[in-house]
Amino acid sequence: MARKKNRMSQEVNAGSMADIAFLLLIFFLVTTTIASDKGITNILPPKQDPNVPPPDIKKNERNIFKILINSNDQLLVEDDFRDNTEGLDQDIKEFVLNFGNPDQENVDLYNTLPPSLKGISSKDPESSDHPNEAVVSIKTNRGTSYELYLEVLDLVKKAYFEIYAERVGLTADEYRALSSRDAAEKELMQRGKENIPMAISIAEPDKTGGE
């Protein structure tokens, strides 16, 4: 009897191996947090030298697209009061591609744009001269919520990315996914950005009110 039992248990029972593996798998599935390093990129201005006075920049009012956000999360876009951010990206696109008073170089730039982008250009003398001059300025208050600030910044970025993507015939999502590691993709990226700098100015927030 005993001998027979010994012979039977010679092989390890591997039937439950899958169950054990499943258990481990589920444990790792639950505990895994795939790190997401996604977000909106921004480059801060260089630090100011206290000995050098800030450069006196003379820029025409019409070349600056001003977005002010107060501590109650209300917006003042180009001196117009707004309650929400709807349509802001479209306004910025129109502003950047206005070509109100382009020089020769920017006339050439205008001619290289695809027809869909030319259509946006309204050549309004009261708006930006050309994309190289256009600056989008965001000024917040210390009491402004970070969420709204990011939403506005997101829309400004969206406007620029849509312009870039349109130039190379991609969608904005595809354009953002381009990687600078691949030579062909890098070239596309450069072609989209060429001569239309993403000029976003983020002003120091106001200290009054709010908090």
Partner: peptide, 19 residues
């Protein structure tokens, strides 16, 4: 804004607003 000011001072100007 305070953090951004300090980052400018520290010359770490590339910022990613994680979202």
């Amino acid at each position: 804004a305070d953090i951004q000011f300090e980052l400018r001072e520290a010359d770490a100007r590339k910022v990613l607003y994680a979202s």
